[in-house]
Write a protein that binds this DNA or RNA. Structure first.
Lengths: 200, 200
DNA sequence: GTCTATATTGAGATAGAC
DNA sequence: GTCTATCTCAATATAGAC
């Protein structure tokens, strides 16, 4: 089917999201103008409003898209563990999953953790619920390890949050051409996490 | 000495910093206007320029003030340790210090970690140097513990960054009226850190 | 679906009166 | 030291031509 000249909706849409993610990660939501995003896409500012009703919704869509992808990828990964896998095996797998997923999309991670303040209260609440869903998946692993007597935990909830903060912090300094290969970094972090949950 | 009416420079200056810190922590640097800050202080926008040459310098002063205070407080605390204190004792002390210092000034912590993107390159470089000075103090403790055979570390640098990320993450969820008292939280985190460095 | 043009609003910063 | 007034510029968002 021939398209009308100048009709590029199916390609422009994703480009708007990609450009917005890149720019907001670098400069922050409030510091980025719709004009800048349009320029990056290669259209005029007015054209963006075919793809989002307003700037706030654009931000929310980016952040919700990231959390949806995180939960979907996590569900797929968790579906792959065997029923007889120990809590420790599942913990290691979670650590590797978290590191891989977050390092593969640094811009989305940055935006999702830094721009919560710029969401409306309703949008903020929606994202917080998704974030809690994800945290709960680690907490379940910790609880099962504690119940089995394999982990030594003082406080499951705090340990969950502490581990996630430790792992996500990796995104602030990791460079692809850095000193260590990713597999080695994964080994170091699984070791740190094992220590934190009392597994030697 | 009687002052001229309307002359409040010695009191307005700190108020400008306090108001800016509060507002920027809540809404982000780019989202806060000089007019909002002025309103919070109780003056007109033009009056702010008696206390800062521009908005960028105001941000930098806030962030550098925080890092200066951090390093000064750390120097004071490190000066209090006895020469015969073990690496483990000094590690525990660092953890408690970091938690206390950061929880006492959540706004400054928030601004210092979130607004790095909004600094000019020169100002950014200056702050990064201060941050590295602080991280080095933990790394020195880890190195001494490893050298003494008391800590089991795979990678000192990464462990340093991982511990600091874990501890600072606390500021994102801690509430004064929360489930646990601060002393108990400190105990949990010292336990997590001990585990991460291979001390049972 | 994208453009140009524009309505409206508010930003950072400065000048000069008091 | 603070105010009022203002310059200059750029923001979000919309309207209507093509």
């Amino acid at each position: 089917m021939a398209r009308k000249t100048g009709s590029h909706g199916d390609i422009t849409g994703p480009k708007v999201h990609a450009a917005a993610l890149r720019l907001i990660a670098r400069h922050g939501f409030a510091a980025v103008s719709m004009r800048q995003i349009a320029h990056e896409v290669g259209v005029q500012a007015g054209a963006l409003y075919r793809y989002t009703p307003d700037k706030q919704t654009l931000l929310f869509d980016l952040m919700r898209g990231h959390m949806d992808a995180l939960l979907a990828a996590r569900a797929a990964a968790a579906g792959g563990v065997a029923v007889f896998d120990t809590p420790l095996i599942r913990l290691d797998e979670f650590v590797r999953f978290h590191i891989r997923f977050h390092l593969e999309r640094p811009d989305a991670v940055f935006v999702s953790y830094m721009e919560l303040r710029n969401l409306t209260p309703e949008n903020f609440a929606a994202l917080e619920a998704l974030r809690r869903d994800y945290e709960d998946q680690l907490e379940v692993i910790l609880l099962s390890g504690a119940a089995a007597g394999e982990f030594g935990l003082t406080d499951t909830k705090i340990t969950t949050l502490a581990i996630i903060a430790m792992l996500t912090g990796l995104t602030t300094w990791y460079r692809e051409d850095g000193r260590l290969p990713l597999t080695q970094i994964e080994r170091i972090y699984t070791g740190l996490v094992r220590g934190a949950v009392g597994v030697s």
